[in-house]
Design a protein around this nucleic acid. Structure first.
Lengths: 349, 349
DNA sequence: GCGCGGACTGTTATCGATATCGTAGGCAAT
DNA sequence: ATTGCCTACGATATCGATAACAGTCCGCGC
């Protein structure tokens, strides 16, 4: 006895409109609008009548229409290098958590670690007229930078400390973190420390970590140039396995490896198991990012932890403040928030 | 000599409008619109004049305005249980890949494996008037189901084979896959096979896998009831480690464990290493999902692989066809696509 | 020379909500 | 009784694009 079956044949899809709700409730559309955003002055009685009409008609507010008149879309664009990297998906989750209660919706895009694609995505996002935009990375193509600057909306750059920020920043120094890690390994007695990382300049955070490593070995007077590079990001676990084999073949005296990410560190360690090389006995291995696999693998992996989700939450919070500022025609100055990183020593070093 | 510097003090954010571009190019707004979507008939000369004006003014098309008149927002909503699970983020990536070339933008939401939250998200998404919606899971609250049915847009349910589909489906039988896995373990000689999975009914795919396991041990006349349950999804690696310890304490004769996901399988195996239990010597362990960690860990983990990204791509493709159908007022019938799964035997069993 | 069709461009109405201003009525202060 | 103010609501203009229709111009065939 399905009575609600749609009429076949002619477009059964016309969505209910606010005017229809208004008609049914015996009020004007404006009053419906006010009732639905529960900020306007509407008497309790009228409101309940309207809500009843909404319920009966199955009406759902159309924000895409409201956006046009209110000049606020309620979108926050967020660009991350990859959705498949849990560090970045954690950040995306953090952003969502920070903004979703405020009626904002995230528009997510993946740059694939590619500045050209980032530029493309920035343009695509701006066509949706977001109220703000959050990007990962502090480096952009000149065009992308110009678009971000002249879009007239708040911008937050995350995961980096750009030399010349566009607007707000939530990040940390990847180079410093990496440098600290090498120093710690030195303290523990390792003297021949290598670096395993991606080959391309696309992953700028990876490049910064390599830079920090380089500085550290120079400062400490350790043998330099012990670096293995593999392909483009996203870095895979498998690549870490291959890399450590090359590493040990090329420099048999190496006693520790710093990997650009926990994923490659994990791959390296598992390959060591397979070949009967003890970790950290034969070689110590450290990673970056405190991925779940590092807390759980055997041995557990020494790493640098940053609170990725918190980066997202903080970026979201700054965005909220900035958007509120724009609304009230008060432009808060740019904020820069440096989030802490923590070295976590585990059994792999 | 920055002449384009915005006037300070008064709202420097007014975005350029199509009318301004039109004025500068000496044409009407309509012609600009046609030139920008490169479908309409515009002479080459006019088009290049318009594109020059666009460039000079840094104009970016406003789709949120266009959506109102064209009645197509260009959004495809996608709901996944979690962005932090690589299976689902792979599916999200597949969806993006399928639709991004067609001028569509994905609106992503996370249900946290919670049907109530799914209902909430469906409502929130409909507020954006997407041209279609893709959901994970074939079970929904009655309200959510009603909203999906009456939204008048194409729906694709993925990752499951719902008994009573709303519209289109791209999925597979989790129960069958799990059952096949147990049968394979039986063939290899294991006779005391346990199941490790989540405790809650929230993860319906996990529940289906448990069901398949149960059927299989009954069919095979193996000891039943050897199941360990831990907390709510998302399942963590750590939980797998704890679970296998309980398992072996409770039923010391168990010789194989099927885990609800590779992540818990991995955690279990690493815990076995720590305790000196050989895998698969003391106990075989199998997972589900073919996560990267399973291909790379030591031992490599036997698992059931489904092409998650492909699920997303196929869902996206079906969505494209359905949306085109709606546009041309021709409603293609619902499609159901059953994607294959593959058992991958590795060293852990 | 006339009519016709195609290529190109402009005009007007419209999408569905919200901003803004206006109005009616109620109540208290003067 | 007048004024002032607040609450609750309606009328209208508007946001920025696109759909639909209406020209205009030009070339070509007969």
């Amino acid at each position: 006895m399905k009575q609600t079956r749609a009429k076949t044949g002619k477009s059964p899809k016309r969505a209910t409109t606010m005017a229809e709700v208004a008609a049914r409730a015996g009020v004007s559309a404006m009053t419906v609008s006010r009732a639905l955003k529960s900020d306007g002055a509407v008497s309790e009685e009228t409101r309940s009548r309207i809500l009843a009409a909404v319920e009966e008609l199955g009406y759902v507010l159309d924000l895409s229409a409201g956006a046009l008149s209110s000049k606020r879309t309620g979108f926050v664009a967020a660009l991350i290098p990859s959705i498949n990297n849990s560090n970045f998906s954690d950040t995306a989750r953090g952003i969502t958590e920070a903004i979703e209660g405020q009626g904002l919706q995230m528009l997510l895009g993946y740059t694939d670690y590619d500045m050209e694609k980032e530029e493309h995505l920035v343009r695509a996002m701006l066509t949706r007229r977001p109220d703000g935009i959050i990007v990962t990375d502090g480096r952009h193509t000149p065009k992308a930078r110009r678009m971000l600057q002249s879009a007239g909306i708040p911008v937050v750059e995350t995961w980096d400390l750009p030399a010349d920020p566009i607007d707000n920043v939530v990040g940390f120094s990847n180079a410093e973190a990496s440098r600290a890690l090498v120093h710690r390994l030195y303290q523990k007695g390792y003297r021949n420390i290598a670096f395993i990382g991606g080959a391309s300049r696309r992953d700028t955070r990876g490049a910064d970590r390599r830079l920090g490593y380089k500085r550290a070995v120079e400062e400490l007077g350790l043998p330099v140039g012990r670096t293995i590079s593999f392909g483009n990001p996203p870095i895979s676990m498998e690549q870490g396995g291959e890399a450590i084999v090359h590493l040990i073949e090329q420099w048999p005296d190496v006693d520790a490896a710093v990997c650009v990410s926990d994923l490659s560190a994990f791959g390296a360690i598992m390959e060591c198991h397979r070949r009967g090389w003890s970790v950290p006995g034969r070689i110590a291995v450290a990673g970056f990012g405190d991925f779940e696999v590092s807390r759980c693998s055997w041995p557990r992996i020494t790493t640098v932890a940053v609170d990725c989700r918190n980066i997202g939450q903080e970026a979201g919070r700054i965005m909220l403040r900035a958007i509120d500022g724009v609304r009230e025609d008060r432009r808060p100055g740019p904020e820069t928030l440096i989030v802490p990183f923590e070295m976590i020593e585990r059994e792999s070093t």
